[in-house]
Design a protein around this nucleic acid. Sequence first.
DNA 1: TTTTATAGACAGACAGTCGGTCTAATGAGG
DNA 2: CCTCATTAGACCGACTGTCTGTCTATAAAA
Lengths: 216, 216
Amino acid sequence: MRKEAMERRNEILDVADELFGQKGFDGTSTNDILEKVGIARGTLYYHFKSKEDIMDALIERYNAQILGAAKEIAANKSIPVHERIVRVVMALNISSGNGKEIIDHIHKPQNALMHQKIQKVIMNGLPPILTEIIHEGIEQGLFSTPYPYECMEMIVAYTNTVFDDDMVDMTDEERASRIPAFVFNVERLLGVESGSLMYMMKMFGNGGEENGNNDG
Amino acid sequence: MRKEAMERRNEILDVADELFGQKGFDGTSTNDILEKVGIARGTLYYHFKSKEDIMDALIERYNAQILGAAKEIAANKSIPVHERIVRVVMALNISSGNGKEIIDHIHKPQNALMHQKIQKVIMNGLPPILTEIIHEGIEQGLFSTPYPYECMEMIVAYTNTVFDDDMVDMTDEERASRIPAFVFNVERLLGVESGSLMYMMKMFGNGGEENGNNDG
DNA sequence: TTTTATAGACAGACAGTCGGTCTAATGAGG
DNA sequence: CCTCATTAGACCGACTGTCTGTCTATAAAA
């Protein structure tokens, strides 16, 4: 019945995570949460100062998970630069096991505020990580751009908006057809020969699932 | 006291527009709205089925205003292609009188849902308009890209995220320094010589204000 | 005994509903 | 042309249920 503060806190966050995912932030009442955890109102508000505070704590966890995974990949210099970039971007967008469930339920339309907060974390956290890799690539003579940071920012903004979202209405074919276009545009932005990143297209198609550790 | 339905409806929308702008959607109660309009609860719900329904109607009005202005500029073939693109994009992002107040108060942090809905309208509505112009430019031999639509989508996603938002934390200098980078990247995407769009940079600095028709 | 965690009653605010009212137009009968 | 009943559309405001956040009391640990 009585528990360590951190344990309770995490229990609450786990339940909130699940319920927000199912019913959205607004659709989930604090009662839903505390009933499912099996605690009283007072306990909930002993551990969190408000409902939004719960969301912020949740985002903090996501943040660590998402950017942590990205940093890990980025630091792995045994992966060729080209591929590393794609992997880092995809670690968030498509589904690489880790962030899959997170990303999945953030994009429920009810979760506009949570969505916005996560986007902000990504838009501020991911481009610096990617820019590091680009600098490596520039040193290796692979890329050529005077504005690596802004390139990455543009790429992240695009993938977050178009691939990550129900922001753009499109059929599956339309989505698929955007991938070669995206790769082509990235090539131009990075100043590489057309086609040199093209071989990685296949990773968009199914590469994200192949090491998925859920749903199997 | 008694009015035509449409008149009342618009009164309510005008007030809601103002209050949402001041206090955000969540921060504005239906009571705030109906008191300021001077009607009873029942009347509000006679004209709108829910609070969100009011927001949707508001977005409908914005939608018409924002994309209408963009279409008007896009259709004006007396403006050179280069400049027309910049003007269309800026019609939404910086401030060209028309959409200024709208855009301004959409970006209050409380208005995440409204923001998301507007973004969606823009992301689906603006690229087609811009793509038309790009096709003109391609015919004139100004641009060269096999993926004009996706280029525009990327540009719009970027400006919406980075310039339009408090999504990215940056100082005024950082914001300013992103502009040449942005222009450079657009040049690459459109396949034009570096520098050929550069002369339009100055429009970003103050061009948006020079024909502003408010606050003066 | 003091601190930490838990409990649950409670207050205040809010969105949306419902039965009923008021008014202006319509139209039939005088 | 007048008048009175009928109707439909606009409006009202009390009411309901729900929700968040607060407060005080209490149990267990340190």
